[in-house]
């Protein structure tokens, strides 16, 4: 046991580096995924037939296949098309594409929940369709989306562990190394589980704060008076 603590202690810097990589994967995945998701949600709700089908195709493809398969196809498959990417960029792309598809569905749901009335009211004072989406629909839809959408960063943080399978030096990869060094896989994986748990806890607190800050006075999620 003392030996394990010694190894854990010596491995701590590596764990922290690994945790930073995990956070980096999560942040890029969530942010780039948000841009993709928002574009697809808007395309699916407001786009013409062409754009709508493109968005549906993307969303269904990436929600319908395993993240691991997507990651392998980006890392091992793209070179076959003449595009060879490093480990980190491959992981970024796969996570962003995957997360974007999920985020699109959260955002689409809340855009639809805002309803046609707000669009009509915006158009009635002379705002264009795009202006109404930009200034009226989205500010409300994004706020409305936060509680459900908050699942996505939390879920993605843990999903980043698949990057270990293309040897990205993330938290999971460090745990594997520690397990080998100490001959104590259980201890190593418990240690890494605790670190994931702590990160999720902090992320959750941040998301709760975001939800609170974005709340519209006098207006609750159900659209009734608070």
């Amino acid at each position: 046991m003392a030996e394990w603590f010694y190894f854990f202690y010596t491995a701590l810097p590596a764990f922290l580096n690994g945790a930073l990589v995990t956070l980096e994967l999560t942040a890029v995945g969530v942010l780039a995924g948000f841009v993709l998701g928002l574009a697809s949600a808007l395309g699916r709700v407001y786009g013409g037939r062409w754009l709508r089908w493109l968005a549906i195709g993307y969303i269904e493809l990436f929600r319908g296949t395993p993240l691991l398969v997507q990651l392998f196809l980006v890392y091992y498959g793209l070179p076959g098309l003449g595009l060879t990417l490093d480990r980190m960029p491959s992981a970024f792309i796969a996570l962003a594409l995957n997360s974007g598809a999920y985020q699109a569905e959260y955002l689409r749901g809340s855009i639809l929940a805002i309803g046609e009335g707000q669009m009509m009211a915006g158009r009635a004072i002379g705002l264009s369709r795009w202006q109404t989406i930009r200034y009226i629909i989205l500010p409300q839809a994004l706020r409305l989306a936060i509680p459900a959408w908050s699942n996505e960063p939390v879920s993605l943080l843990k999903s980043t562990a698949v990057a270990f399978l293309i040897a990205v030096p993330d938290l999971m990869t460090r745990a594997k190394a520690l397990a080998v060094q100490t001959y104590d896989p259980i201890g190593a994986y418990i240690a890494v589980a605790v670190i994931y748990l702590a990160m999720v806890y902090v992320l959750d607190a941040f998301l709760k704060l975001l939800e609170e800050r974005a709340r519209i006075p006098g207006y609750s999620v159900e659209g009734k008076k608070a």
């Binding site: 009335g117 707000q118 009635a124 409300q140 659209g223």
Partner: peptide, 17 residues
């Protein structure tokens, strides 16, 4: 044209945010 025609709706439709 629309900005020169004011419209008031049955259910108000104020911008909630």
């Amino acid at each position: 044209c629309r900005q020169r025609i004011g419209m008031v709706f049955q259910n108000f439709l104020l911008f909630n945010h």
